[in-house]
Design a protein around this nucleic acid. Sequence first.
RNA 1: GUCCCCGUAGUUCAAUCGGAUAGAACACAAGCUUGCGGAGCUUGCGAUAGAGGUUCGAAUCCUCUCGGGGACACCA
Length: 563
Amino acid sequence: MMKHMFEKSLKENLRTVLCDLFNAKINLEEIEFEIPTDPSHGDLCTNIAFRIAGKVKKSPVEVAEKIAERISEDSFEVKSLNGFVNFRFTDKFLFNLSKDTLAFERERLGKRVVVDYSAPNIAKPFGIGHLRSTIIGQAIYNLYQFEGWETVGVNHLGDWGTQYGKLIFQIKRKNKNIKDLSIGDLENLYVEFHKEAKDDPGLEEGARIWFKKLEDGDGEAVSIWESCVKKSIKQFEETYSLLDVEIDYCMGESFYQDKMKMVLEEAKGKEIAKESKGALIVDFGNEMPPAMLLKSDGSTTYFTRDLATVRYRIDRWNPDLFIYEIGADQKLHMRQLFKTVEMLGWKKSEEFFHVAHGMYRLKEGKMSTRKGRTIHLEYVLNEAMRRAEEIMMQSETVKDMTEKQKKEAIKKIAVGAVKYADLKNHYSRDIVFDWEKVMNLRGDSGPYLQYSLLRARSVLNKCKQEPISEESTIKLNSEERAVLKKLIEFDGVIESAVRNFTPSSLAGFAFELAKDFNAFYSSHPILKAPSEIKNQRIFITEATHKVLNKSLDLLGIPIPERM
RNA sequence: GUCCCCGUAGUUCAAUCGGAUAGAACACAAGCUUGCGGAGCUUGCGAUAGAGGUUCGAAUCCUCUCGGGGACACCA
C-alpha cells in the first residue's frame, strides 16, 4: 500500500510541477512509471516528458531537465537523461518500501469469477494437453482468489457426445465386455474405430445411432457409458492428487442433458436459432461461420451443451467474469459461444475470456493420437523423478533423510519441474515438447526455485530475526538493492498476471527474484555479516523467502522439505 | 479458398498492453570450495524472417512477401 501511496503522491507532485512550469494540464492516468532497463539510471522512471513535449512545444530533453531540477525529496533523487526522468531511492526508502510487499492481505472485491479448466475426456488417458489446461487454470484460479475475487472452479468433464457413440458402437462390434477394459484399451478401441471408419464410412452412422440411443436413455448404452465414467474418474482423481490440484466442482457435459431443452426453446423463441439443411443453427452472417445447436437427427452438439452450461452458471453463481482455460483450437467455438450468449441477452461478451492455450507439438511433428504420437503424463513424471533421484544421490544434504522423505521430495521436485516448464511460457504460444527442457532440473526450472527457497529457509532456521528499528542505519550494496527492487515489483506482477491471465508473468518474476537472491547470497555473508548490517541481510533473506513461497504457492508448485 | 495465431542467439523462451544499450536458460568456452545448501555463483560467445510505412522512439502498431500452426455444420 505504501508503494501505491508513494506513486500516487509522486504523480500528483509531477502534475503540479508540469502545470507550474509549462502550464500543461494533464491527467494522473497519463503519468506512467516504469522500471529503467539499466539499473544505473535509477529505480523508477517516467516518460512523461515525451508525452507533453509536443503540447508545450519544447524538446523532451528540456522538459525532463526542468522537471528534475524542480522536484526534490529526501527519499529519492531525481535526474533526467535523454528525456527520461529517473528516480533513485535512498537505501532507507527502498528498504521500507520492500517491507510493504510482505503484506499479502487484499481486500475482498465482492466480485465472482467462474474458472473452467482441466476438462479431460473420459475413456482416454490424461493427456499432456489437458495437463496444460489444468496447471494454467489452477494458477489463474489461485491468482484471482489472492487478488480478492470470489472464485469458483469447474471441471467440465468431456463425458458426452458422439465420441461415446463411437466407443460404445466399437465395443459392441468387437464383442468386448466393458468390465475387462482398461482406459488404455478404451483409447485403443477409439483409435481402431477411426482407422476402420476410413474404409467404411457406414460406421460413422452407426456411432451416431448409438449416441442417439445414449441420449434417449437406452439401458445398454447408458450402462456401458456409466462404466467408462467410473473408470475414468477414478484415474483422474489419482492424477489430481499427484499434481496437488483440487477443483471445486466436477460437472461434466452429461450434467446438462436435461438443461438444453430450455435453452433451445429460448433460442428459437428469440429467433436466434434457425433451421438449415435439417439442422438447427445460429447464423452469424458474415462475421463467423454458423454454429450448430441440433444435428439433423435431433441430437445435441457440444455447442448446445456449452450454451446450457453458461445458463446454468449464471443461474447458480451469476459471476462477473467467466474464464475458460481451453485450447486455442477452440477459438472459433468460443467466439461463437460468447456471441450467442450476447445475442440471447444473458451477458456481454466482455464478461467472458478464453485463455486459449497453444498446443503442444513434438520435434518430430504434430502430436496425433491416431499415429500413437501422444505423451502420457505418467511417463513424463516418471522420467522427471528418475532424473531428480540421480541428482539427489550426489547431494550431501539429503544423506540423513529416510527413504520415505526422499521419495516425497523426488515427487515434489518432478511435479514442480513439469508444472514450471509449462507455466513459464505465455499461454498463447505453442510449446515444442522437448524432454530435455521439461525435465530440466537446473537453470530456469522449477527445482531452481525450490532450491533457492530452501536455501533461504535454511539460513533463516539458523538464526533469530530481530526487528529492525526505525532508527537503524540502512546501507545497501548493489546485490542487496537488486533483491529489494525485485521484491517491490511483486504487487504489480500479481496485478498484471490477473489482468492478463498470465501466470507466466509470475513465473518469470519468481525466477528473477531467485536469481537476484542467489547472486546476493553467493557474494555476501548473511549470518557472519558485520553486526550493523546483519539484521538487514536477514530481513532480505526473510522477505525473499516469504515472497518466493507465496509465488510458488500461487503457481501451484509444491515445495519439498529438503532436496 | 476464407478467417485467426505465430516467426527474437545453435536450441527453447522473456521483454511490465510503443520506451533508453533486446533479457534469460540450455548447449559451448574459461573460472569460483578455509561463509550460511555447488540442483549454486561469475565471465565470454551469440538474435528481432524480409521489404516498406506510421513517430521523438517499433520486436511490439499498419501494408505486402516468405515460412510455421490452427479453425472453418452434423467429432469435442
